[in-house]
């Protein structure tokens, strides 16, 4: 109940933030731009629309998660609204979880809006609703939940600009860490290989949530991989949230 109240307040606060609509506007422009690209392309035009559309959903969704995720907790501390909130009979973890679910709800609504526009555009070309695209969108949503938890973690102890940079770094590293796997195979054993192996195990691999290519090209995906990705997302998010709660619990609000 208390978490729900904080989550709905966070949702209200986030959807009244103009920056969100600016990002949404650019996302819609980008999805629309895929139509232009498709016209200029030789080959399967619908695939281009799907490719660019899903990539836009993923990128702008991540931008939203970073912008609102890093700002909202900091704003509570900076503007001291947290003073009266935490003086009420709530635990600090309830506050943080409320914030998290509020942000996740906001992202869900935004992703839903973008998805409707995207699916509409695809429908305009194929004259059928391609429900299987929702699988790729579901995994984008899982990724956004993880990014939100990371943004919350950083905003527990850092300013919005630094938190945004850290979270953006997490996002970029997460999408390029798979390169380490190739690196490990190529370098000979020694310190370099050991370091690459350690990094490979500890750095996030956000490519686990990337099913865009498989979905767009109708490639088969074993259910085991789906399950792995879901569990990876859930446990990683839980791990980061636990870390955030541990830091937040010890914090003094000077």
């Amino acid at each position: 109940m208390k978490i729900r109240a904080i989550a709905f307040n966070t949702f209200k606060e986030a959807i009244r933030d103009r920056i969100l609509y600016l990002i949404l506007f650019f996302a819609v422009v980008c999805i629309g731009f895929s139509r232009l690209l498709a016209i200029l392309t030789v080959g399967d035009r619908v695939k281009i629309i799907k490719d660019v559309g899903l990539a836009s959903l993923s990128l702008f969704g991540a931008l939203m998660a970073i912008m609102i995720g890093t700002g909202l907790v900091y704003k509570e501390i900076e503007k001291k609204t947290i003073y009266t909130l935490l003086s009420k009979p709530i635990h600090r973890f309830q506050f943080l979880l409320g914030k998290f679910f509020g942000l996740v709800l906001t992202l869900f609504i935004m992703l839903l809006l973008m998805s409707i526009i995207f699916l509409g555009l695809v429908f305009f070309h194929t004259f059928k609703v391609e429900w299987h695209l929702l699988i790729a969108i579901f995994f984008i949503f899982l990724e956004l939940c993880l990014i939100t938890s990371v943004a919350l973690l950083f905003s527990c102890f850092s300013t919005p600009i630094l938190s945004s940079l850290f979270t953006l770094a997490f996002y970029l590293i997460g999408h390029t860490a798979w390169g380490l796997e190739i690196l490990i195979k190529k370098i000979k054993s020694g310190f370099g290989k050991a370091l690459a192996q350690i990094l490979y195990h500890f750095l996030p691999d956000l490519e686990n949530f990337n099913f865009k290519t498989e979905i767009v090209h109708n490639l088969p995906i074993p259910p085991k991989i789906f399950l792995y990705s879901i569990l990876y997302g859930v446990f990683y998010t839980l791990f980061v949230l636990t870390l955030a709660v541990l830091i937040f619990r010890k914090r003094d609000f000077i």
Binding site: K12, E13, K80, T81, T84, K88
Partner: peptide
């Protein structure tokens, strides 16, 4: 905590509400 009411100095609340 359930028995406390608190008014901070220079109160600032959720201005969107």
């Amino acid at each position: 905590k359930a028995q406390i009411g608190f008014l901070p100095e220079n109160p600032y609340f959720y201005d969107h509400l």
